[in-house]
Design a protein around this nucleic acid. Sequence first.
DNA 1: GTAAACCATGAACAATGGTCTATTGTTTTT
DNA 2: AAAAACAATAGACCATTGTTCATGGTTTAC
Lengths: 113, 113
Amino acid sequence: MRIGELADKSGVSRDTIRFYERNGLISSTTGESDTNNYRDYPDHNLELLGFFTKARDAGMSIADLRDIIETMNGSCDRSEAAQVIRNKIDDLKTRADQIARVVTFLEQSLENR
Amino acid sequence: MRIGELADKSGVSRDTIRFYERNGLISSTTGESDTNNYRDYPDHNLELLGFFTKARDAGMSIADLRDIIETMNGSCDRSEAAQVIRNKIDDLKTRADQIARVVTFLEQSLENR
DNA sequence: GTAAACCATGAACAATGGTCTATTGTTTTT
DNA sequence: AAAAACAATAGACCATTGTTCATGGTTTAC
């Protein structure tokens, strides 16, 4: 799949896809053509971009995502990779708790007005 | 209270406090001295800064906070102000849901490895 | 009364996460 | 074969959220 198709299907712009690739979140194979150097993306990148979008919405940084991707790919030591992910999960849960506290605070401010 | 004391007590740096003030999140009264123009902060700013810190941690933007503060202060129409806050609450809940989904996804990726 | 600590302002700088533009080359469509 | 659509790269640009710096004035402590 070329970048335009991936962009259309994923809802992530070409520029952003290239930006993600520069930052190590996804990788393309060099297409089989000799006359161009168009990127070629295997299908699973679609799923990956979907995850990135959700994760970015949840407040994860590019660096967080790169950590996850790198440990999943490299995965020399899979228990170490699992730990990286568990840490990210903990961060997310902490953030969710924080949100809950702020929601409570705002709800109280509505009641006490 | 002068800015240094507020910074110490709140854990928010002087520079950040001035930045927040420039951006309409807090306001100081001009001190009573004739010889200086030091800012003076009523005590409630301490609570306010605590809220901002939590809210920023929860992923709210400066603009979000400014919306809240402005509608709370201006509050010409209090039902309108309440609506602004309810919208922010909804945004936060949406974000919390998003986090929960990403956590689930990551937890599954740990199980299926 | 002098040094140290504090405060003010404005501007520059920095990191993050993109987005846009210019230029050039390749496909695809007509 | 010409036009339209797509792709690549490099670099400029943008908003957001601060932080740092330079300069200069004010307070406080010794």
